[in-house]
Nucleic acid binder design. Structure first.
Length: 172
DNA sequence: AGAGGGATCCCA
DNA sequence: GGGATCCCTCTC
């Protein structure tokens, strides 16, 4: 759930990746820095980072205060506020299902940026998690875009959902 | 399939 | 201070 200028945008999370403590692929692996500080905070907070010159990515912290672990939110199925998401994407022709497909697109569609880094997702007025009760079949695979610890099946996605990102071969 | 993009971090 | 790296996206 995301509130922008008084409007509530809803995206149903359909794809995540886990970044574990002592995970060579995790930003936290080499210890705490200015960038990844939020990852070491208490659970259910936002860790937002910038990558590849253009993309912001949203993670939800896990584990207790002092332990660096998080789930990268890779894709959402747009549920409400679709036209606002399209405007935030800045592209007219994008199909609904692609608006928040991929971690960078997701942040753009929901207006998530550095201002959200460290937000408490249980108390923040403009960004939080909610349970809609839907329990899709969940598939898993190796994580996307990694070189280190690339063999661990820590990506989880809603099977058959067209907003799931990545090569189609990975989302049967 | 390939280039672009900029912050970050490590090792000098 | 330099250069490799990076949890990607778009256009070709």
């Amino acid at each position: 759930m995301r509130v922008i200028d008084g409007e509530t945008l809803i995206g149903r999370i359909v794809e995540t990746e886990a970044y574990l403590p002592d995970d060579p692929a995790s930003h936290a692996f080499r210890g705490m820095t200015a960038r990844n500080r939020a990852m070491f905070g208490p659970p259910l907070h936002a860790y937002v980072y910038f990558i590849y010159g253009t993309n912001w990515c949203l993670n939800v912290t896990a584990e207790q205060d002092g332990i660096g672990a998080a789930a990268l939110v890779r894709a959402c199925e747009p549920v409400r506020g679709i036209e606002t998401m399209r405007a935030l994407r800045g592209r007219a022709g994008v199909r609904d299902r692609d608006l928040a497909r991929g971690p960078g697109n997701l942040c753009r569609a929901l207006g998530i940026g550095p201002a959200c880094d460290g937000a408490d997702l249980e108390t923040a007025p403009d960004l939080w998690l909610a349970d809609d009760g839907i329990r899709p079949a969940v598939g898993s695979s190796i994580r996307i875009g990694l070189t280190r610890a690339a063999d661990m099946p820590l990506r989880f996605y809603a099977v058959g959902n067209s907003s799931v990102s990545g090569p189609r071969a990975l989302s049967p």
